[in-house]
Amino acid sequence: MRYISVEEITTNIKEMCIEANYKLASDVDKHIREAYTKETSSLGKSVLKQLNENIDIAASESIPICQDTGMTIVFIKIGQEVHIKGGLLEEAINKGIGLGYWEGYLRKSVVSDPILRENTKDNTPGVIYYEIVAGDKIEITVAPKGFGSENMSRIYMLKPADGIEEIKHAVLETVKLAGPNACPPIVVGIGIGGSFEKCALLAKRALIRSIDIRSDKPHIRKLEEELLDEINKTGIGPAGLGGKITALGVNIETYPTHIAGLPLAINISCHVNRHVTRVI
């Protein structure tokens, strides 16, 4: 048994909220810089130049990369040998979010009720996913999600007979509908399988995986590669103003599913695909 205090969790969450918003995740950072050299459209190149400068200014001057500092998504994997002491885990996480958004001068974008829409003033609550795993550690991923791109995400309940062709069609349709609203170049997180809600969660998890890591399943890896290619052929380009870099990466996560179904979720992220992971 290992004891971890709620204070330690709060402090880590606070720091991770700030870090995620000032400093672009290294995988996305690398790809967006490469995109500038690969892009051939002049408007696209000038957009990417601004985006690269933007990342530098954000990191060096501690300004959020984007003013939409997101709704705070938290994935927490708790080793079953861990005992959390000193308070409630959920309160500790939300306290960390509140402190991070205040101390980091991050925008508070959360409303307490989807219809009444009153701002909670500290960006809480986060959207928290708990998982119990083996071991005596806690792994936390903080992924603040902007809604320009979140709003362009979609779920399709396909039929088994639809297969790969319909999956591709649905992904391309979603990317085209997202167009400039999702602030391309985008990162595409895809969940295939499970149930209605499971595929959405898989898609979100796909977004926090490094875009340098391909699926270990050969047929899924192939699909990731083909989709990236086809998305970039749409010509949407940086900021949706035309060009060949529309996406920086496509990550797919899968799960077993029912004999009658083929759930598909496509979670779109802008180039500000924030994710920070720590193990404590």
């Binding site: 957009v47 601004q50 985006l51 400068e53 933007n54 990342i55 200014i57 954000a58 001057e61 300004i63 959020p64 990369i65 984007c66 003013q67 939409d68 320009g148 167009g179 400039p180 609203n181 602030c183 900021a239 949706g240 103003l241 802008c270 180039h271 500000v272």
Partner: peptide, 28 residues
Amino acid sequence: KGKRGKEVIRSIIQNKAVYLVAIGGAGA
């Protein structure tokens, strides 16, 4: 940032206005 609806485009022409875009995600 992003596209506008038909009504807005019609109104832009009618009122001789303009829609400009800044680069989304370049807030800093």
